[in-house]
Amino acid sequence: MKLKRRGFLAGAAVLAVAIGFGPAKAQSEFKMGLLVPGSVAEEGWNRIAYEALKRVEKELGAKISYVELHENPAAFENAFRDYASQGYQVVLGHGFQFQDAALTVAPEFPDTTFLISSSYVHEGNVIGLNTDASQPFYLMGVIAAKMGKGAGLVGGIEIPPIKQAFEGFMDGAKSVDPNFPVSTVYIGSFTDATAAKEAALSMISQGSDFVVPNANSAGLGVIQAVREAGTGIGTFSVYSDYTEVAPKNIAGTFVADYGQGIVRIVSGIRDGAVPETNVDFGLKDEDVIKFTYNDGADKPVPEDIRKYVEQVRAKIVAGEIQTRAK
């Protein structure tokens, strides 16, 4: 019998495709995808999400993948679909800008949970994740008003999360002393440490004895200014631990362990417990939002103030104090 050439070729082609593309993966494998709006190679916002993803891989044994989309909104929907159509159970869009695209795509993929960073959304399987910095900033405001004569706040760019944090600080300070002076400056950059330093020095010269940054990497300039100004001037280390830069001036440190928050939420989703509302990490989440004192400072926060702050913290956790307008 003559071998039919066409049939043979077709068979070979099918075989080649089967080998090349591999067999379908087992359904039980847990997979998480990540969309970042920039490069994960640089320190900062995108790196935070990447490190959270690596922790999900390590601690939950998930298969992970990420894609850098460089602020190109036309690509967002397609990247969500790429992951969801491949059976990824969780896809994290790291930034508010991903919310629209996720809301468009999500109804097509009910088995996938779409998480959106710095968003309050909750629609079906799209869930916003936010870190509420206004709560730790409220505590800082309380401490500054208890210990100092005036405070200065140096912000990066005037965007909602930073404005909310500063409003929390002011509310905290005013809860102690309604006339406590707080001045605010936005330097218009998240990287210009020199501008942040200049702003901080001018605030110190005008009588602020607590100067607090919230300006990503530019915030380091504030810490340097406070160190140069010497004893009597205090600050807080925000999001990163800069205690080594100004060990005598830093009264306390606030860090947000977003990775821990992501691991907790994602492991819940893996076990079938998809959050029923949007997620807002605050002081109640002690594994995520950490506020600690620096005992090595020239003027460490005294014990009685710490006790008072602990009461305030309990009230915030219980919902008796609102640190942010909803």
Binding site: A41, E68, L69
Partner: peptide
């Protein structure tokens, strides 16, 4: 994009 998502090429 596919290379990033499916093969983790940076």
């Amino acid at each position: 994009e596919i290379m990033q998502i499916n093969a983790q090429v940076p």
